[in-house]
């Protein structure tokens, strides 16, 4: 069991390290591609300041926060449905299916009307909570389908060597289907990092550094959504928006690679 724990710890550390390298890589790749309208400065307050750092960190914070909260709770729910209450699964997954079809803009309005008065304002926290909710339904269905593929022999074998059933389900089952889980998480991260509608409604759209949980902030997707098409043609601002779009695509790709390192 210690070996299994060590493997997960090493994978997680590798993924966290890769995430940090991702931040530097986005700035480096933009520089190499000559996308010099956007700067490595901290603030995005156009047209005077076109720094990438605040929206970049905002995107990473939103994606990681929603991934941990939404993905984490979805995994726990999937474990419950797959191993603890398999009989309740058809009913509950049917209910979750209704949540899967909920347009994110409706969840965003829910956040504006109900959530913001409770948490006291605009910022990354409101976005993380609502995006977690948006991610929870499809991720639960996805994780449940993956955990169903755990061979029965793995769980029986764990009990046979003296571990209790819970240990087998908690540590050995995810290891048996790790590749599928990691791919699901990578897909979820790509979707979360590019989500713009909910973010623009809840984050406050202020690209000043540093982004904060409970202060108006911005992500690259929210900047593109709120400013795309509005910048004067041919201006550095318009060029910077194109660069920001490129940076978002690079971030999504690198984030996928970073999380994929978990499966190494």
């Amino acid at each position: 069991m210690r070996a299994v724990k060590r493997t997960w710890l090493a994978g997680g550390t590798l993924a966290a390290g890769a995430l940090l390298i991702t931040l530097a890589a986005v700035v480096l790749v933009l520089g190499l591609m000559g996308a010099d309208e956007v700067t490595a400065g901290p603030d995005w307050v156009p047209p005077s300041a076109l720094g990438i750092l605040a929206p970049l960190l905002g995107s990473v914070a939103v994606a990681c926060g929603a991934l941990l909260l939404g993905g984490g709770t979805a995994y726990l729910a999937a474990t419950f449905l797959s191993f603890e209450r398999p009989r309740a699964r058809p009913v509950l997954l049917g209910l979750f299916g209704a949540g899967t079809w909920m347009p994110t803009v409706v969840l965003g309005l829910f956040g504006v009307v109900w959530l913001q008065p409770i948490i006291g304002g605009y910022g990354i926290l409101a976005v993380i909570i609502v995006l977690s909710l948006a991610a929870f339904w499809p991720a639960t269905a996805h994780f449940t389908a993956i955990l169903d593929a755990v061979p029965r022999e793995v769980l029986d074998g764990a009990i046979a060597i003296g571990a209790d059933g819970a240990t087998g389900r908690r540590l050995l089952a995810p290891r048996a289907v790790r590749t599928g889980l990691v791919r699901a998480v990578v897909g979820l991260a790509g979707r979360l990092v590019g989500e713009g509608t909910v973010t623009a409604l809840l984050i406050g759209n202020n690209g000043s550094y540093p982004p904060a949980l409970l202060h108006p902030s911005a992500t690259m997707a929210s900047v593109l959504l709120t400013e795309g098409g509005g910048a004067p043609p041919g201006s550095p601002w318009e060029g910077a928006l194109w660069s920001l779009g490129l940076a978002l695509a690079i971030l999504a790709a690198l984030l996928g690679r970073a999380l994929g390192a978990w499966d190494a």
């Binding site: 603030d43 307050v45 504006v112 009307v113 913001q116 008065p117 304002g121 605009y122 623009a200 409604l201 406050g204 759209n205 202020n206 000043s208 550094y209 202060h215 108006p216 709120t226």
Partner: peptide, 23 residues
């Protein structure tokens, strides 16, 4: 001069009114 770093930047007049009404 610089604008405040803590403003909530709303998408429309309607969003400003909604936010001011609720905050």
């Amino acid at each position: 001069a610089d604008v405040t770093a803590r403003s909530v930047n709303a998408l429309s007049n309607g969003d400003v009114l909604l936010g001011v009404r609720r905050t």
